[in-house]
């Protein structure tokens, strides 16, 4: 009986762990990685997202990363900070980054809580983003 419940507990734990696992879905076009960020992410998943994008940037010799936020219904300050950090890290690595598909509700809530959005690079669609990336500064 005890062994059963122990196994059950382990199973649940494994399931929860695998639920925490996060892999970015996305594709590379023109040396630009388009990362689709879907659903609300826990802080652990946000960390994984950060690692994954930065690792990808190094491995694939990218020119820039477009973060597609179309799948996000809400964006809290913690998630916003992580996304900003990703942009900052990419800039340090010499890559350009652009945010794409911010919803009206997210835009108004971001300015309402006074997020620093001044130096962000925003694009409306992939075509835009890729063009932004290919411009030499």
């Amino acid at each position: 009986m005890e062994a059963d419940s122990f196994r059950l507990l382990n199973g649940v734990k494994a399931m929860m762990d695998s639920g925490d696992e996060y892999s970015v879905s996305g594709s590379v076009t023109n040396r630009c990685y388009i990362a689709c960020i879907n659903g609300e992410l826990s802080s652990a998943q946000m960390g994984q997202l950060y690692d994954e994008i930065v690792r990808m940037a190094e491995k694939r010799e990218l020119r820039g990363v477009i973060m597609d936020l179309n799948g996000l219904a809400v964006l809290d300050s913690a998630a916003f900070c992580v996304l900003r950090k990703i942009s900052g890290a990419l800039a340090l690595m010499g890559l350009k980054s652009a945010w794409m598909g911010i919803k009206p509700a997210i835009a108004s809530s971001l300015v309402d809580f006074g997020a620093d959005v001044d130096d962000l690079c925003i694009c409306q669609n992939i075509e835009d983003g890729v063009r932004l990336m290919s411009f030499q500064k």
């Binding site: 009206p104 835009a107 300015v111």
Partner: peptide, 12 residues
């Protein structure tokens, strides 16, 4: 100011 920031976030 808020409105201009929000529109900028929408890429406009």
């Amino acid at each position: 100011i808020k409105i201009t920031k929000a529109t900028k976030l929408m890429g406009c």
